[in-house]
């Protein structure tokens, strides 16, 4: 194996090429106001059937309950340690929707995760207006699968964290300094056009994506 490594690298190295820094990189960004960014984000998201709600610091929990009820969800998978998780815990008992913390390693409840979860909620690390994308950096509290397995995925997005472009987000947030084991851009519910180029939603991941924008 090491032998192959050596052989491949040797072959590549025989082609004499100097390592020059001639590439002029640029950060591509737009001069959009916060409102323009929110609008653009919402338009892009809606175009791929994500649901975007403009809510507020005080009403998002109620809004979330209403949305989940209208979708017939019976439970909500969440991260109890996160600030929004604590808020949920205070205010969800009367809703009839069961709050389930994602607090075990996946192997210990895989089947339950796959078969019993109706919805999940996560925060995010911001969003991208240009393409209508959420930035998620899963961590110990909000694991990777929280945004993948339940058929309904809800996300809280503070409006001031919407960047104009991916490039801008990477630059301003200093991603190079350190990224998590898994980072994601999520731009709508799961979809496919593999059958006769007809768009179908909810292939393997969530069937609905709900974004709650908080000013």
């Amino acid at each position: 194996m090491n032998e192959s490594r050596q052989k491949i690298l040797d072959r590549l190295r025989t082609v004499s090429r100097e390592e020059g820094g001639w590439l002029q990189r640029r950060v591509d960004k737009r001069a959009w106001s916060e409102e323009e960014k929110v609008q653009r984000f919402a338009e892009c998201m809606s175009a791929v059937r994500a649901e975007v709600y403009r809510t507020s610091e005080v009403s998002w929990v109620k809004d979330l309950q209403r949305i989940l009820k209208s979708k017939g969800a019976h439970n909500l998978l969440y991260a109890p340690v996160k600030p929004h998780g604590k808020l949920l815990l205070e205010d969800f008992s009367s809703s009839g929707i069961e709050l389930l913390p994602y607090d075990l390693e996946v192997e210990r409840w895989k089947r339950r995760l796959f078969e019993e979860m109706d919805a999940s909620i996560t925060g995010c690390r911001g969003a991208i207006a240009e393409t209508g994308s959420l930035i998620l950096w899963p961590d110990e509290e909000e694991p990777r699968l929280l945004s993948l397995i339940p058929p309904i995925h809800c996300v809280l997005l503070p409006a001031e964290q919407i960047y104009s472009t991916f490039s801008e987000a990477v630059d301003i947030q200093g991603w190079v300094e350190g990224m998590p084991t898994n980072a994601l851009l999520i731009s709508g519910p799961s979809k496919s056009a593999d059958i006769a180029q007809v768009l179908a939603y909810g292939v393997h991941g969530p069937k609905s994506l709900v974004v709650l924008i908080i000013p």
């Binding site: 892009c44 791929v48 240009e130 393409t131 209508g132 994308s133 990224m179 998590p180 084991t181 898994n182 980072a183 994601l184 851009l185 999520i186 731009s187 709508g188 519910p189 799961s190 979809k191 991941g205």
Partner: peptide
């Protein structure tokens, strides 16, 4: 404009 998922993997479970 973008696909639904852009998945950036740095490493295994920590």
């Amino acid at each position: 404009p973008i696909t639904t998922y852009f998945n950036m993997i740095k490493g295994p479970r920590q």
